[in-house]
Design a protein around this nucleic acid. Structure first.
Lengths: 326, 326
DNA sequence: TACTAATCTGTAACCCGTTACACATTATTC
DNA sequence: GAATAATGTGTAACGGGTTACAGATTAGTA
């Protein structure tokens, strides 16, 4: 590995001069610069980021904590972040938390020790006080953490409303909701959006709402139970696409035709929704855009700029497909 | 940020002693150790990984290069790697190459500069000579790079054979193949497996094989064309699950029933295959296991152990589902 | 011409750990 | 009791950059 000393020696200058050339700061004579650049090329010198980090106390690295990259919602999120950051000269450390506070803490510890410049966090459990301990720029993505921390998320409530309204529009007369886990902001707000619309209906029963844990199998199970105890239900709003898929499976197992007997709409707009039969209607999130902007905000924070807008709410878009076409 | 000096000062010892306590090496008196540990706890001292890396010339970080985390095959692969490595004390840098040699090179440069300890690479384009330039432990995953580099991959050819045989067994009389991109080891070998079985059939035509680029939309297009020009085809082996899905879409658009009119089988065993209707038969890969073992091999390499087995071939498992049930 | 400002370059301290080496003390062995 | 081994601890160099500071030239100005 060639070091700055090797280059200095080769170019017959001091390491300070080489450093100045590399970083384009301070005065350097044109001829000297050329000599140094020639030596850099000749020796194929690449400055050592670790040494630089040690001095500068920053690493040009950021961490992204997601619950589970295996969940189809997150790859695109991570991709949006990574794409932007690499182009800004940052590398991205991937952290799968499984929503486990211990793991989250572990990852934050590691980040701190590695002089990571900042973190993008998707979490329900991390609190502002914990983040304060680590004293690094943080941006919340998909779920808010605290009003002081810049957040990039979907307007879940209005999305929930749109979903319920759409089901009413296509003629559903009894609409159930497969809700995500309790006390998770996303699922709660989507549920509230549904309630906003449905509570005005005289037929509404609280037993039309069941909890599905954002998981396909679980959603299939609870949907089946729901449809068995409430055969009058002809429309289902699932709290995310994966659960909508579970609902689709449930309908199938009960020999219900979608959309004729049962209309189904999901939430998220992951690619999966185009791959089912019938294709799933959904509330699509601008995932890539959102994550990219989160990454932008993080780099701004790292560069010491204030981000004026703490709350960045993105609209969801209704995508009408076969599963609600009636 | 507390440093080792702070701790030393607090415990009234030298930094060397603190270092010895932290790393549990060298002689340290029991009482001294306790004093130091108390100071560490009190000050919540976490050693600075960057400084350590600089001296040790290793970073407890590895890079993983995948084409695109957004492709449903890779998240599980990455997860297998990350899970194993975090537990071994390594963090994982995620790199999306888009199969672009420039990006691959850029990522390798960054890794080198950050003293990354090793890399796990999924690539068709990276060559051994390039890797040699970087002089770091490398393991190839999913696709081989060179016989000198430990490889963890599926037995694609035998998988291709199993797929073709299965279609014959369920009674298909004309079997087409949607092949992945040319000169990509995986697609070529799956194709060869198909040929191994099909070439003995007197009905075989080379026009039964079309190329689909591992992409759903493209696969749907070429499958449709294939079925239109060869309506006698009643079985399709797609080079991966995403293309099998495209084939399913094509069948649908031609009003063909799956599996009655057309049996379809994919390759990979991603979760998606359980989510379609009908559910897709596929050759399932032990993705998580394979990637975990790749990570194990990489850490072994990093620790200076030789990995005896360069070629680690994993079997695929035939999963029979509705799409080939006839 | 004299003086100030701008340009150029090198020396050395610093970032924060790790460890070779030296020295001191205590334990073991004959 | 002397010699040797084992234990305990500190000093300082080192890893590879960055930059404050000083000193030397050159350019610009009155």
């Amino acid at each position: 590995m060639t070091t700055i000393k090797d280059v200095a020696h080769h170019a017959e200058v001091s390491v300070a001069t080489v450093s100045r050339v590399i970083n384009r700061n301070g005065y350097v004579n044109e001829d000297t610069r050329k000599k140094v650049e020639a030596a850099v090329d000749l020796l194929n010198y690449k400055p050592n980021s670790v040494a630089r980090s040690l001095f500068k106390k920053q690493s040009k690295t950021i961490g992204i904590i997601v619950p589970d990259i295996t969940n189809p919602y997150f790859p695109e999120l991570v991709r949006g972040v990574e794409d932007y950051l690499i182009q800004k000269g940052f590398t991205t450390i991937l952290c799968n938390s499984d929503e486990d506070p211990e793991k989250e803490r572990l990852y934050l510890d590691v980040m701190k020790q590695k002089y990571v410049d900042g973190a993008i966090i998707v979490s329900n459990t991390i609190e502002r006080d914990l983040i304060a301990e680590y004293d690094m720029p943080v941006v919340a993505l998909d779920r808010s953490i605290h009003q002081d921390i810049p957040t990039f998320a979907i307007d879940n409530r209005s999305g929930g409303r749109k979903a319920a309204e759409h089901l009413l529009e296509v003629g559903c007369t009894r609409i159930g909701h497969i809700k995500g886990p309790d006390k998770v902001e996303n699922s709660d707000n989507r549920y509230l959006g549904y309630i906003d619309v449905i509570k005005q209906q005289d037929w509404f029963l609280s037993s039309y709402v069941v909890e599905g844990n954002f998981d396909q199998k679980e959603a299939a199970k609870v949907t089946k139970e729901l449809l068995q105890s409430h055969p009058e239900i002809d429309g289902i709003f699932a709290g995310n696409d994966v659960m909508a898929l579970g609902a689709l499976k449930a309908a199938e197992s009960l020999n219900l035709n979608v959309p004729e007997d049962l209309a189904i709409i999901g939430f998220d707009g992951i690619d999966l929704t185009e791959m089912t039969k019938p294709e799933l209607s959904t509330l699509s999130q601008p995932i890539y855009q959102m994550s990219r902007e989160a990454a932008e905000a993080l780099t701004a924070l790292i560069e010491g700029k204030m981000v004026k807008e703490k709350e960045n709410v993105f609209p969801s878009t209704l995508i009408k497909r076969q599963s609600t076409k009636r």
